[in-house]
Each structure stands twice: as C-alpha cells, then as structure tokens.
C-alpha cells in the first residue's frame, strides 16, 4: 500500500521522458515510434491470449485490415492528408472490429490449439487474398500519400501518434481488467466449461474482447502504414511470421495475463531486435528466430511471472492491489 507515491513518480518520469524523445533523441524517433506500436501489439494480444486464454496467431489480420482501409480512404476519398489519415484510421478500426464481431461466433467457438491454428490460417489467408486483389495493389501493395509537413516533421508526428495510441490503450485495458468484464475473461481462461455451466454469456464476452483488440489494432494499422510509408500484403500488413508472432512472443516474454508484462516484454524484445539489426548483419533474422525458440522453450513464464516466483509475497501484494477490487 505504500507503493503509490513512488509509482506515480515513476509513471510521471516515463511520461515526461516519452514526450521529450523527439527533442532528446531525434535520430531514434522512428524506432521508438515502433516501440509504442509493439507495446500496443503485445497489449492487444494479451487481452485474448493472456487474460482470456485464447492464443491467437492471427490478430495481425485486424492490423492489416485497418492499414489497408486507411490507405484506401486516403487514396480514394480525396480528403486532406490529416483528415484522410484520421478518418481512415477510424474507419479501419471500425472495420476491423466489425470483422472481429463477424468472425467471432465461428472462430471463437474453437478451443485450444484449434483456435491457434485457425487464426494462423486466417491471418495468412488475408495476406494471400490481398496479394491477389488488384484493387488494393496486389502483391506490390500500396503507398500512402506523402506527408505534407517540413523535413523531420513526419517522424515527430508519427512518434507522437504512436505514443498516443499506446497511451490510450494501456489505461483503457487497465480499466477494463478491473471491471466485471476482466473477471469474466479470467473465468473463461480458468475454466470455460464452468463459466458456461454458471450461465455466463461467454460468446458475447469473447467476441467483445476480440472486437476491442481488433479496434486498437485497426487504429494502429492506419498509423503504421503511414509511418513506414508503404503497405505490403505479406511483409507488413498481414505479416504472420513477423508481427503476428512477435505479438505473442512479447506478451509471453513480459508475462502473460498481467497488465504490465506485455509492456515490459515489448520494450525488451524491441530493443533486442534493434540491436540484432545493428550488430548481426546478415544473420539478424536467424538470430531472431533462435531468440523466439529460446524464449518459448526456456522462459515461458515471462519476466513478471519469474519475478512473481522469486518474490511471491512482495508480488502477491501488488497483484492484490491491482486485481483485488472486483
């Protein structure tokens, strides 16, 4: 109970640091913008995977849908750059959420590994469809319109945009996990048959959770398409074996089913990845593959899970504080 003052200060410090990045480290704006994106990835994945126990390999689907929807609106609606971007991202997010609602009753009825493999197929199918569809540029993908501001303004703008996305997602999920909704998700994770036997409308909760996850991913998709400056169906939008797996991995690395775990996992993973790209020329992708295997095989409990085993009573307190109020 004596943690809050310290915690508030820590949060304030991180916030201030995050806001000052474009001034302090202008060279790293793009990498750090992607860090916030990774945090959103891990958080939205953990909503299903960690809190609800539905391990999806296909959440990248919603990211890609949001990305394509945004860039199509920017291309075809004839709006100004910023109007197009914001309306496009919003529309992409809604489309992604609608898609999740549509797919939910079918896909979320699958349990365990069938869900995992089914969603894997879903994400890749979307990528393959997009690569064949000429309206969205086929295999070559699409290019979003040019950023109108001065040189360097683009990076700063997208840095703050990504930061804002993460800064909205995290408190929203925190609020969500403290509500009845969060409890029901945990119940589904612990014993879905029991939840049904108690009369809980599990499908409704599961689908809503997926919609929320899809909404934030769709929103992020629009921003990332513009941040990267191109939309490629297999390598960016529906990148199952990069973004799609990273989402899962970051949440596991940090600690599944905790609020801060995915954030920590995303930060550690992103940093490691950037270091690989800098120092392991040519072998970085192999190293990353190896890292994935090593994390999953040797460290499946994650950083927070490990810390909880190490200092149970101290951690028990924090868990109580975070989760005790139903």
């Amino acid at each position: 109970m004596k943690a809050p003052p310290f915690r508030h200060m820590a949060v304030a410090a991180v916030l201030a640091l995050a806001l000052l990045v474009p001034v302090l480290a202008p060279a790293y704006r793009s990498q750090l913008a992607l860090l916030w994106v990774m945090i959103v990835f891990a958080l939205t994945w953990d909503l299903l995977g960690g809190q609800m126990g539905y391990n999806s390999f296909g959440n990248v689907l919603f990211f890609g849908v949001g990305m394509y929807a945004c860039v199509i609106i920017q291309r075809d609606a004839g709006l100004g750059y910023f109007t197009g971007l914001f309306l496009g991202s919003g529309a992409g997010a809604l489309l992604a959420a609608a898609l999740a609602a549509l797919l939910g009753s079918g896909i979320l009825g699958l349990r365990g590994h069938y869900f995992a493999i089914g969603t894997l197929g879903l994400g890749i199918a979307a990528g393959e469809l997009a690569s064949g569809w000429q309206f969205v540029g086929g295999g070559g993908g699409m290019v979003p319109p040019l950023f109108p501001g001065e040189v360097g303004g683009r990076e700063t703008f997208f840095y703050y945009l990504s930061f804002a996305l993460a800064a909205v997602t995290l408190p929203f999920l925190r609020w969500l996990y403290a509500s009845r909704f969060g409890l029901v998700l945990n119940a589904i994770r612990d014993d879905e048959d029991k939840a049904e036997a108690m009369g809980l409308r599990t499908t409704r909760y599961k689908t809503t959770a997926w919609c929320i996850s899809a909404f934030f991913l769709g929103l992020t998709g629009g921003a990332v398409g513009n941040l990267l400056g191109f939309v490629d169906p297999r390598e960016v939008a529906f990148a199952g074996s990069t973004f799609g797996v990273w989402m899962v991995l970051m949440a596991i690395l940090g600690g599944k089913g905790t609020l801060w775990g995915p954030v920590i996992g995303a930060a550690v993973f992103h940093l490691t990845k950037e270091l690989f790209w800098t120092y392991l020329l040519g072998w970085q992708r192999v190293a990353l593959g190896l890292l994935i295997v090593v994390i999953v095989v040797f460290f499946p409990v994650g950083i927070l899970g490990w810390a909880r085993e190490r200092w149970p009573e101290r951690f028990g307190h924090r868990i109580d504080e975070a989760e005790a109020g139903p």
Partner: peptide
C-alpha cells in the same frame, strides 16, 4: 461437479462476484 470446478486463478471473492445471476 463431482470433480469440483472453480476458477483457480482468481480469488474466492472474485469467484463469487462473477457468479451473480447472469439473466
């Protein structure tokens, strides 16, 4: 259930409050 089923990862109180009548 004969083989008792509860939500193992949650506290007793949490187990209780989500069992309010859903209807």
């Amino acid at each position: 259930f004969q083989q008792t089923r509860i939500y193992g990862g949650m506290t007793c109180l949490q187990n209780m409050v989500i069992s309010v009548p859903t209807s």
